[in-house]
């Protein structure tokens, strides 16, 4: 059975690193893995996703509507934008810190209210302010690895040495920070 994980966020939030780490863990667990990313202009502050699929044999590299077992949303509006990809009964991991888009920054539109409440009613929601938690750890940028920690806990990939993977993937200077971030996410209740 193929499982699908969709990461949704805003350009610059580090979703590619999070999905690379996940993919490495899945390969280590012996799965066939495919992954899809978006490059180019879409990255300039726009809405971005990466998609990871794994199982015994994976065909399509992209996830269809209603097909993601887990969505990891780095931002509330992005959770709403991609909610149509969540499988009925699927899990949504959400970082609640808002990133207003240009139309909101300029005052042309308001940031929508009631997103977290809506998601709580319409998905199996795990919400946390990963941005704030990462800032408390010393660097806002580590939010991606906090969210990965939350995801890792759900996926129960018991044989994976996550910290070793992080060590391989990130600059030595940031290892301690990211190891702390991972543990923070993994132990989040």
């Amino acid at each position: 059975m193929t499982k699908s994980i969709l990461f949704a966020g805003v350009g610059g939030q580090g979703i590619v690193l999070a999905s690379n780490l996940l993919a490495a863990a899945l390969i280590e667990s012996g799965f066939d893995v495919k992954m899809s990313e978006v490059h180019g202009m879409a990255q300039r502050g726009g809405s971005v996703t990466t998609q990871v699929r794994f199982g015994e044999k994976v065909h399509s590299p992209i996830i269809g509507k209603g097909n993601a077992d887990v969505i990891v949303a780095f931002e509330p509006m992005e959770a709403i934008r991609w909610l149509n990809h969540l499988k009925p009964g699927g899990t949504l991991i959400l970082s609640t810190a808002r990133i207003p888009s240009s139309v909101i920054l300029s005052g042309a539109m308001d940031y929508p209210e009631g997103i977290v409440e809506y998601l709580n009613e319409h998905a199996d929601l795990i919400s946390l302010n990963a941005q704030k938690m990462a800032t408390d750890l010393g660097n806002e940028k580590a939010m991606n690895v906090i969210l990965l920690g939350v995801l890792a806990k759900i996926l129960e990939l018991s044989d994976v040495d996550w910290l070793a993977l992080i060590k391989k993937e990130v600059h030595p200077r940031f290892y301690e920070l990211n190891a702390k971030a991972f543990r923070t996410g993994y132990s989040f209740k």
Binding site: G11, G45, R81, I104
Partner: peptide
């Protein structure tokens, strides 16, 4: 057809790419 839920449009604003 795929089975999925669609969130209300008023809960999301566009996020077009912009100059950094």
């Amino acid at each position: 057809k795929p089975v999925y839920q669609e969130a209300p449009a008023e809960l999301v604003a566009p996020r077009p790419p912009i100059l950094c």
